[in-house]
Amino acid sequence: MRARTNWEIVCTVDDLVPESGVAVWTEDGPVAVFYLPHRLPALFAVSHTDPFTGKNVLARGITGDLKGQPVVASPLYKQHFNLQTGQCLEDEAVAVKTYPVLLDGNNVRVEIPAANKESVAA
C-alpha cells in the first residue's frame, strides 16, 4: 500500500536562487520552486507550466508582491500568480497548481499527490 503522499527531494539549497525560481522535474511533471528569503515561509512551489500557454516557463518569471500577496509574473504574457494559492490575479477562472514544499536539512522536498503519480508518469 502506497503512502497517501510522497515528499520528493527535488533539489538542494545550493540550487536555489534568492528572490527567484528554479524548475525541477517531479513525478507530477515540471514544478517551479521559488525562494524568497525575506518572507516566512521562504519556499514556494507551483506548477512550472503557464496555464495560459501550456509552456513550461513560470520558474523564469519575476517574483515580488502585489497588495501583500507573494506573486510570480509569467515571463510570456506577464499574468501574475499568487505563489501561496496559485490564483491568477488577472483572471479569476485561472489558477496554477500549488505544492507543499519544505526544507529538510540541505534538501528541498515537494509533496507530490499520490493520486496523480500514475497518470502523469512520463
Binding site: 518572507r39 518569471g61 519575476i62 515580488g64 508582491d65
Partner: peptide, 10 residues
Amino acid sequence: KGHGCDICKP
C-alpha cells in the same frame, strides 16, 4: 515598501 514586482524590479 514590500518586495517589488515585475514593473519596478527591471
